[in-house]
C-alpha cells in the first residue's frame, strides 16, 4: 500500500485515496472551437510515461481534496505533491 503525501494532511495510506489520472490536462476554455481531433486528444491522449509522472489524486476518505503529485511509475515512489493551481516545487 502506497504512502501518499497529501499536501493538506501529510503522508497517508493509499486506502484513503482515489487515483484521478494524469495531471496538467485542463478542460479547454472553448470546446466548441476545437476540431474533433483536438477534442479527442483532450479526452483520451495521455503520456503514460516510464518514470516520473505528474498525476492527480483525491484524498477522498480524508480532506476530500484533489491534488497533484509526481510519482515514479517504476519504483512507485512519490517525489512530491502540490495543490491544484500551484506549481510543483
Amino acid at each position: 500500500m502506497l504512502l501518499i503525501p497529501c499536501p493538506y494532511c501529510g503522508p497517508r495510506p493509499e486506502l484513503e485515496f482515489t487515483y484521478a489520472g494524469e495531471a496538467n490536462i485542463s478542460r479547454p476554455a472553448e470546446p466548441e472551437s476545437l476540431s474533433d481531433e483536438q477534442w479527442a486528444a483532450y479526452l483520451y491522449q495521455r503520456t503514460n510515461p516510464r518514470g516520473m509522472h505528474a498525476e492527480r489524486w483525491r484524498h477522498v476518505h480524508g480532506c476530500g481534496r484533489y491534488f497533484n503529485a509526481s510519482r515514479d511509475t517504476l519504483s512507485d515512489q512519490f517525489q512530491f505533491s502540490w495543490k491544484p493551481g500551484e506549481s510543483p516545487p
Partner: peptide
C-alpha cells in the same frame, strides 16, 4: 459527487 467535486475543485475553483 466525485465528478462534481473534480470539476469544481480543479476546473472552476
Amino acid at each position: 459527487l466525485a465528478m462534481m467535486e473534480d470539476y469544481l475543485q480543479t476546473e472552476w475553483p
